[in-house]
Every structure is written in structure tokens, then in C-alpha cells.
């Protein structure tokens, strides 16, 4: 069988890029996309591990991550909409005070 290490390295690189994206982008929606990127990177790792160990638990975990990501995106985007509605801005830096 193949060595699956490259997959994991790719997963690590994607995860790190997602991290940096969360830190440098200011548009809340793009930040959210970066979070999704990180989740996907971890999913890749799960699937790789499933293949490595020869059982389906990793795939089930990836499936759960997708479900949770879906729920998270729904709520997160609703929050972004609400904030946008009240301050006409989607920048995460604008919400820097503990008040509207």
C-alpha cells in the first residue's frame, strides 16, 4: 500500500493556511470560510487515518464534523447577518467593544 504521509502533510498545510486566514482577514464571512478550510483539513486527516487503520470510524468522525460544520455555518452566518444589519459592516474589527 501507499504511504499516506503526503496526505497528512497537505492536511497540515491547509490547516495552517486556515489559521493564518482567520488571523489576517477582516471580513467576517471570509474568516468563516477560513474556519471551514480548517475543518476540511481536519476531515482530510480523519479520512486518511480511516484508511491507515482500516476501519470506518475516521470516516464517521469526518461525517460528524460536516454535520456540526453545517449547523455552525447556519448560526454563524445568521449572527453575521444580524451584526451587519445593525452596523452596516461585516468587519470583525468593528465589533471591538462590548457594546453596539
Amino acid at each position: 500500500m501507499d504511504d499516506l504521509t503526503p496526505f497528512l502533510v497537505l492536511s497540515a498545510i491547509l490547516f495552517s493556511i486556515g489559521c493564518v486566514g482567520v488571523l489576517v482577514r477582516r471580513n467576517a464571512i471570509v474568516v468563516f470560510m477560513c474556519v471551514e478550510l480548517m475543518l476540511n483539513a481536519s476531515n482530510l486527516a480523519f479520512v486518511v487515518f480511516a484508511k491507515q487503520h482500516g476501519n470506518l470510524d475516521g470516516q464517521v468522525a469526518a461525517f460528524f464534523v460536516m454535520v456540526v460544520a453545517a449547523a455552525e455555518v447556519v448560526v454563524g452566518l445568521a449572527i453575521i447577518m444580524t451584526i451587519f444589519r445593525s452596523r452596516r459592516s461585516a468587519s470583525v474589527d468593528d465589533a471591538s467593544l462590548l457594546k453596539l
Binding site: 482567520v22 488571523l23 477582516r26 474589527d93 465589533a95 471591538s96 467593544l97
Partner: peptide, 13 residues
Amino acid sequence: QNGYVRTYALSVL
């Protein structure tokens, strides 16, 4: 504690 969520995210990282 500048209130910017990205700074806090940096500390988490």
C-alpha cells in the same frame, strides 16, 4: 486586551 477578536484568536493559536 484591545477588543479585536483576531488578537485573541492569535493568542489561541
